[in-house]
Design a protein around this nucleic acid. Sequence first.
RNA 1: UGGGGUAUAGCCAAGCGGUAAGGCAGCGGUCUUUGGAAUCGCCAUCCGCAGGUUCGAAUCCUGCUACCCCAGCCA
Length: 560
Amino acid sequence: MKMSDKFTSFIHDIIDQDLKEGINSKKVHTRFPPEPNGYLHIGHAKSICLNFGVALEYKGFCNLRFDDTNPSKEDVEYVESIQEDVKWLGYRWDDRMYYASDYFDKLYQYAVQLIEDDKAYVDDLSPEEIREYRGTLTSPGKESPYRNRSIEENLDLFERMKAGEFPDGSKVLRAKIDMVSGNLNMRDPVLYRIQRANHHRTGNKWCIYPMYDYAHPLSDAIEGITHSICTCEFEDHRPLYDWIIENVRNLNSRPRQIEFARLNLSHTVMSKRKLRQLVEEGYVEGWDDPRMPTISGLRRRGYTPEAIRDFCERIGVAKAVSTVDIALLEHCVRQDLIFKAPRYMAVLRPLKVVIDNFPEDQVEWMDADNNQENPELGTRKMPFSRVIYIEQDDFMEDPPKKFFRLAPGREVRLKHAYIIKCERVVKDENTGEIIELRCTYDPQTRSGMDTSGKKVKGTLHWVSAEQAINAEVRLYDHLFVKDNPEESKDTDFKQNVNPQSLEILKSFVEPAFAEAQPGGRYQFLRQGYFCVDPDSSEEQLVFNRIVSLKDSWAKMQKKK
RNA sequence: UGGGGUAUAGCCAAGCGGUAAGGCAGCGGUCUUUGGAAUCGCCAUCCGCAGGUUCGAAUCCUGCUACCCCAGCCA
């Protein structure tokens, strides 16, 4: 998609058509309807961007509605985190935050109406019996012996269900539709069940609760929703959705359900059940672990709302089952941060370098732009002195041909400073391990000066030892080693957890980081984008790697 | 013996009877005081398969095939 192209999809086509035909007074009103039973993830972000996005594009509205019809699974903890996540993504619902539970009274009245119209009945069959009577995918169901109770008896029984006269599970209210339908959802679906549970909003007022299939279309109609966008697994619920809308009297709006394919992302899992397992079995540290595809995890990792919105736009909306390459998500955040993030220096795996011809107690403050490509981010001073650190990877004692970095006898530029030459390698006598490098610098090559025509192949980042700040750096990688962790039905996805998804380093960062605040995002020059973690304290900065920079050297090495 | 849906490049995805957009990934060049960024170029003679209609088909018709969803008093 060209970035200038207007975002479009089959959903836009449907809306355009409805608008053309003047359906629903030519308004567009959507809703994002999470059940408050877990944390939101990137798949929900797709739905949020779609629903709020469509409303914005058509100058309509999008409601936030909690689908809280099953008190045994839901909790206020989740309604709070969901609001926070939607807000963080950049969407506003103003005063349009609702709960399906707001409509419990109305929903009850509508049910009474259906009974009066002989379209619903109270069934005494047990859950097991209902299942048996439902038939199977390939064989028809049969009608319940209670299906033909009189309207009066149904009315009485339903009222007594509500009054708490019957034990949990002993009776249900069912729609009277068609027990031989090829669509199982139409085989007299349950509308209400008896469940004594404390509801997070209505407390103990109710002991009967409506089912999703009943509550959802009616909630949509009550709110004047015009386009009720959901995922494909609800496609064969649509006839029931429409049946409810058509058979409840006096509804003044006709919402239309439209289905799209849910998001799958490579190298991760998306189902609430699996994410919960990762948390509970200790594969990650919590729902907001930076490796999690949850909104809270991505936020802590350092992803921006802009990047996530851009991602949701780029992946498009369609109905085919698909798995988006996580590289696209990573591309989006690099793209967003490229001009926004100050580019500072951090040496992740330090190697000591002594510059022998630099005066012992001298500190020279170098001018450094904060973002070469965005002058608006200003400049800072970087101390340069006799002892500095460079990256271990930036030195090789016996380098291959294409290695452009430091090696014995070779010269490289230190970004924002001087060109140095490696004169000598100092090793531990016993282990042979490289302890430090002795180098010399060329005073004529200070950054910005005429470098007397001197060209070097490589430019390194560095940190002056004396002024360096200690930091913990958390390097994150894909949570799973396989692009599809659930390769086949008989693989346990946890077998594919990446044992190297987190690497913790003790690093040195330049003094400019002294002012860094939790949530702050930076580019560590030549390495990637990093975000200050809330675990940071006065004593210790903690950084999360959001994403690495593209690295063609690493790629070359990998190919070999 | 059922019902619903989907098939266009490695991954997404436009396309709506006039001769295959775009993005990501990949590959190659230029440039570069980040092996980053930027920039230029390459990357489907072909649209799940087989027939048919048409001057002309990814688009229409017929028949296959593959994959996904559905038998909660979950959503």
